[in-house]
């Protein structure tokens, strides 16, 4: 595993100490994970939601839940009623 590449994919800077520490740990953790490869899972459907339950839909109705002030109340930076971020192009 290329730690740097994965960290970039996850948009996460790691400190030097974390880099060193993770580098060592990842190998043994993934080795541990790989124990499952011996189990025969041919034709088994992956399970996501563990409890059997009925799916439901929402009716197409408009309900306003937040005011625009509430939408923006936690914004680190804003301009008018818009969120503001550094240039992205």
């Amino acid at each position: 595993m290329e730690l740097k590449k994965v960290a970039q994919l996850a948009r996460l800077y790691l400190s030097e100490q974390e880099m060193e520490e993770f580098q060592k740990q990842m190998k043994s953790i993934f080795q541990y994970f790989e124990e499952i490869k011996d189990i025969d899972t041919k034709g088994i459907k992956p399970l996501v939601t563990p409890t059997p339950m009925e799916a439901f839909f929402r009716e197409d109705e408009v309900i306003q839940t937040l005011s625009v002030e509430e939408v923006l109340q936690n914004a680190p930076e804003k301009s008018g009623h818009l969120f503001k971020v550094p240039p992205v192009v």
Binding site: F56, R58, E61, V62, V68, G80, L82
Partner: peptide, 30 residues
């Protein structure tokens, strides 16, 4: 359940789900 109309002002049709607030969950529109 926030509106899809674009007539309103900036960020007016935004619910916790649309805003991606911690804990908000999606429910499918039939």
């Amino acid at each position: 359940s926030d509106s899809t109309s674009f007539g309103g002002g900036d960020n007016e049709n935004v619910s916790p789900v649309t805003l991606g607030l911690p804990g908000a969950l999606p429910v499918v529109n039939k």
